[in-house]
């Protein structure tokens, strides 16, 4: 599990670092997830079957990946609203230009990442070079993407290749969901990125941009690359969403906007940058989707889902604050 600090893993875990680890969002949200899953299993014994778990992972993957991408931008002290636009855009692109077969799936994935990367590059240029505010700039690109999606596909429909629809929602060896492997690949890429100069620079500019610049970090370049990488990851999220829904919808990205930020916050990443990690965001997304499922299986009307999701978000943040406070006090 990644810790909250950008620093490399310590050689010897000091009590300080232990406190930071335990109080980090990723750990708390994982514990909450396990508790909720336990409740779910009590309620609904089929929860422990590979099928239920697999479909839960399938449902979670698009949001988890979108939140992972958003985390990159938020760590560098920014907000990226274009996530919703990129998901809609890649979804309609895939539904309008289906390519069959494994090669076709790979081609579609590349295309989605390229679309996301281009949008990310535009965001990065506006924010890092022209120095526009991130919310304003990405709000603009989000609206443009939504508009483009409507031009490409003006009503829900389109065709998704069978290979994409079947394989990506499949389960390997009876218990490993393919979508889970894609999420794992994103996590793997992140763990590598964290151990590059760029990864360290990302946390550094989120913490203190001035000090980072005086330390020789190329702030504009780092921020630009964060947006590009995030855009590419949103492309993967759009790809995964298309595999789940097996249809194109020009508005498919809209529900992701708020939930992405909720997942990031739930995962303990500071919305003011510099603190947190991508794994927390993925667990945050997983918790939000599990909650939806538990409420659904408990017969709670889906109208109430939002209320519960919001309440969990607020409670998790309050809980994490209180825990940090207690741990710090007990040491003092």
């Amino acid at each position: 599990m990644t810790t909250q600090v950008a620093s490399l893993p310590p050689s010897a875990a000091s009590p300080d670092r232990l406190v930071r680890l335990v109080a980090s969002g990723a750990v708390i949200v994982t514990i909450l997830y396990l508790i909720l899953y336990g409740l779910y299993a009590l309620w609904e014994p089929s929860a422990l079957t590979a099928y239920t778990f697999g479909s839960l992972v399938n449902n979670t993957a698009p949001l988890a990946i979108a939140a992972a991408g958003e985390t990159l931008v938020i760590l560098a002290r920014g907000f990226d609203l274009s996530v919703a636009g990129v998901i809609s855009l890649t979804n309609v692109v895939m539904a309008s230009y289906p390519v069959d077969g494994p090669g076709g799936a790979l081609l579609s994935l590349m295309l989605c990442m390229a679309v996301g990367g281009i949008v990310g590059a535009v965001n990065g240029y506006l924010v890092a070079v022209l120095r526009l505010q991130t919310i304003a700039a990405t709000l603009g690109t989000m609206i443009i993407c939504q508009g483009l999606s409507l031009v490409i596909l003006d009503a829900p429909g389109g065709v998704v290749s069978d290979f994409v629809a079947d394989t990506l929602t499949d389960t390997l060896f009876g218990f490993v969901p393919v979508s889970g492997l894609i999420v794992a690949a994103v996590v793997g890429a992140w763990l590598m990125l964290r151990r590059t100069d760029l990864g360290v620079a990302l946390y550094t500019i989120g913490t203190d941009e001035a000090a980072a610049a005086l330390s020789g970090v190329r702030v504009a370049r780092t921020r630009f690359l964060a947006f590009v990488a995030a855009g590419m990851v949103y492309g993967i999220a759009g790809f995964m969403l298309t595999a789940q829904t097996v249809t194109g919808n020009p508005n498919s990205g809209s529900p992701f906007l708020m939930l992405t930020f909720a997942a990031v916050a739930l995962g303990g990443t500071s919305l003011s940058g510099g603190r947190g990690g991508l794994v927390g965001s993925i667990m945050g997304a997983a918790l939000l989707m599990l909650l939806q499922k538990v409420l659904f299986s408990g017969g709670v009307s889906s109208f109430y889902t939002g209320i519960f999701q919001g309440a969990v978000l607020v409670l998790a943040i309050v809980f994490s604050r209180a825990l940090t406070h207690l741990l710090e006090r007990s040491r003092a």
């Binding site: 620093s7 913490t207 005086l214 330390s215």
Partner: peptide, 8 residues
């Protein structure tokens, strides 16, 4: 001082 506080 120009040391980012989250670094080692």
């Amino acid at each position: 001082l120009s040391l980012p506080s989250n670094l080692t």
